[in-house]
Design a protein around this nucleic acid. Structure first.
Lengths: 129, 129
DNA sequence: GCTTGACCCTCTAGTGGGTGGAGGCTTTAG
DNA sequence: CTAAAGCCTCCACCCACTAGAGGGTCAAGC
């Protein structure tokens, strides 16, 4: 398979697939013309990576998850730990964003949003309130 | 004021303050020895920027907000619009993270987390479930 | 006067995770 | 035979800083 076909199958941009090769996630063979030639196993890995990335795992997490996936003697505890640590980071991020959201929505409510200059949002940013 | 003192006052790293000068947010004077010499107005702007950034506004949003802040003939509607658009982006991000969170926490619950290789997390990533 | 340590300076390069584009092959359809 | 689509590499760029090298300056203590 050529890269374009693979890209459609796994729903990843071509550039991303080339990048994943560059960072060692996959090692597709090459055809005589120099084109990358993907095997099913490459496609499978790319799908795995796409799914892991869509769950927010970092590239380095993905690298470890992929190794664990390919290691038949893995301990599920190792996988679970990575997932749990990731969940904690997600929770922290959600909390942070919700705090922003709260502040911001209060400020927006308080702002007249007309053609006059007075603005509680700017007052808050300037900490003059 | 020198940069170190300012950094403590506005609780921004020194490097960040220099970066904010580089991108044109502030133009502190220079002392004879080449040190940056900050006026109250610079400190005030930095505090404004720090607060805006902590609410998640992008650098370019901050640039516009700062201009509006310094423009006495602004319309509060312009400020409000920027804030509303930002709120929409935050909401989208929160939703995205919560979707990840949901999937991830279900998978974590389903995973034994012991020394055996069987792992629902990896099965999900490989989309073999 | 000298040293020490805390400051400050500039400049370059790196982070993560790709993305965009230039410039140039190859393949495929008509 | 030609045009379009597809593929290749390489370099630069995105955001918002951050790290570090290499060096100048200043204040306190001896």
């Amino acid at each position: 398979m050529n890269i374009g076909e693979v890209a459609k199958m796994v729903e990843l941009p071509i550039k991303t697939i080339r990048y994943y090769e560059e960072i060692g996630f996959i090692q597709p063979r090459r055809s005589a013309n120099g084109y990358r030639s993907f095997r099913d196993s490459d496609v499978h890995k790319l799908a795995f990576l796409g799914r892991a990335r869509s769950l927010g795992f970092s590239i380095e997490d993905c690298r470890i998850l992929l190794q664990l996936y390919e290691n038949d003697t893995r301990a599920s505890a190792d996988v679970k730990q990575i997932a749990q640590e990731h969940l904690i980071r997600i929770d922290a991020k959600v909390k942070e964003l919700q705090a922003m959201r709260n502040t911001l929505s209060h400020l927006i409510e308080a702002c007249a949003g007309d053609d006059r200059p007075a603005c509680p949002i700017l007052l808050d940013l300037a900490m003059l309130n």
